[in-house]
Write a protein that binds this DNA or RNA. Structure first.
Lengths: 315, 315
DNA sequence: CTGTTAGCGCCTTCAA
DNA sequence: TTGAAGGCGCTAACAG
């Protein structure tokens, strides 16, 4: 019978068994190494249990996320994996009443009723801030991702802001810039931050892509990293350790986290009681892009006399 | 009725309509920006036509590719998108007799009976070789991807080899190294090539990831790019234009190519007659990582007296 | 242990 | 225009 090339029909199978062996995952985009890793890990773990991944992307738009979620449900997915916990309430409610298992990844803590596997974005950033403070930095700026409709990006900004406030500092408007996660935007963001007066001695980036852009732009502008400017990223992508200087960043065990998310899905589909929120540990990896601030900048917190902003040479 | 949260059941629908509205795509891996772009483009174009992407990966293993293809068919995909044309004959035959539309992407030309959208990997590389020859290079080496089970990687090596041979040169074993597509392996590969005597004055890389690694390693070793060593990549990933020096590379219009592949799928599912093989134009983008060879190296083709190999400092 | 059958939810056809 | 019914391919329950 296999000689005849028979393969079962999944539609009929799904109809009878009332499950499709298919899990949906919705990502903001797939064009970011951190999500590529996620897809990879999810896909592999699900495949090990004979399940297939159905992929959808939202372009960071919550309405699209809702549409895609319903689309996937129509497609008969047995469960959903979502990024973060910031989904529209109406969507969450609909998923709840439909009884589809949902696992939220990358955020922790999470609202009571959600199943989540993630890390504490704010706490991680607070750790970064404390590290920079310990080095002697006082002028700490942030090159953040777009926080709108992105609970992780927002939590990272909040973490930085709160930690700075706790240290008697703050995050003034000129020290906070939001940019898309691409190298061009990141470079532009760094230039904007370098216009601030006094100029920051350290820039915390919302993720490694932003940090790569910042690093490249600093190199181009002749701003020495880390001597004149410290840069910190988030994610620890492969490239982070290869750049020169190597990037100090927050390591996220993405592979393990997404694998665990897949496991939660599988448990839930087995009918097992799954833990609500699971925290994944992240840690600061110190490399060459951070150092104490230059002596002149260390002295005080008050504005230095205005200087001409570094002119942005054309590429 | 939508107020009750009704969504149709895709299984039943698929059964009745004899199509699932689902297209399968099989990639070697998703953890490479070039494939991430591909997934993104495919997914978007299919979504525009109300179709959903089912994703599978092979880890560059042809057996896994066969298994995944059958898996996807079981899942009821209406069509398949595959990378390259190097699939096992038994798989292609099975797909043919089953009558599933299949589109092969990234390779051109393709065997008569296949529907393909791709570019001529060998010709693109020949163009790179000619460019380097015109600059005056004679010692041209290649840092290739793993060619086994990868028709694109193999075609790129063949393109380089043939073009060198046509110029009365060749690609001796010491000038050809194959490495996985990751930065660590690429750096190692560059070190290996730099041991060759005489040392190459230009290195053509199988893709941009390898080129990034080569560039980073050259920087670390203090080998000036492009003054002492020219480096060429393939793909034109975002990072290529941002690195210092910016990478000379072959631009592949990935977005357009994958979109067209999706279009071919859609046409085929409409029952339209689809063009067999469509060639996508690629072009060399000259940036800062290539220049004429250093004067000393330019002189002759014969081995220079052996020197100590560049010692590989630890990172 | 093997063989038969009902029904999963939808769409299309045919009847009223 | 609205309504009823068959069958897509499978599995599980049940009969022989």
């Amino acid at each position: 019978m296999t000689a005849l090339g028979y393969v079962p029909n999944a539609g009929a199978r799904a109809m009878k068994l009332r499950r499709s062996g298919t899990v949906g995952a919705i990502f903001p985009t797939v064009d970011n190494a951190i999500f590529a890793k996620a897809i990879d890990a999810l896909q592999r773990r699900l495949a090990e249990s004979g399940m297939q991944l159905l992929l959808a992307t939202t372009g960071y738009d919550p309405e699209t996320e809702t549409r895609q979620a319903l689309n996937l449900l129509t497609r008969g997915v047995d469960a959903l994996v979502l990024c973060g916990t910031g989904q529209p309430e109406e969507l969450l409610q609909q998923l709840r009443q439909r009884g589809v298992p949902v696992v939220h990844v990358m955020s922790w803590p999470a609202p009571q009723e959600l199943v989540a596997v993630g890390f504490d974005n704010a706490r991680a950033m607070a750790q970064v801030v404390r590290y920079l403070l310990d080095l002697g930095h006082r002028r700490i700026a942030m090159l953040a991702g777009i926080t709108r409709d992105n609970d992780r990006a927002a939590a990272r900004v909040a973490g930085v802001r709160d930690a700075l406030q706790a240290a008697g500092l703050g995050l003034p408007p000129a020290y906070l810039v939001e940019r898309k996660y691409d190298l061009g935007a990141a470079r532009d963001g760094l230039r904007a931050l370098l216009q601030a007066d006094p100029r920051p001695t350290a820039v915390i980036c919302g993720n490694d892509v932003l940090a790569f852009g910042a690093l490249l732009e600093a190199n181009r502008l002749g701003v020495a990293v880390p001597a004149q400017l410290s840069i910190v990223g988030f994610d620890d992508l492969e490239l982070a350790s290869h750049l020169q200087p190597a990037l100090t960043t927050v390591r996220v065990p993405a592979e393990a986290m997404w694998r665990l998310a897949a496991e939660r899905v599988i448990e839930a589909l087995r009918g097992a009681e799954v833990p609500r929120a699971t925290e994944i540990d992240v840690s600061l990896v110190v490399r060459g892009s951070t150092a104490p601030p230059p002596p002149r900048a260390k002295r005080d917190l008050r504005p230095t006399p205005p200087r001409a902003a570094t002119p942005a040479r054309r590429r």
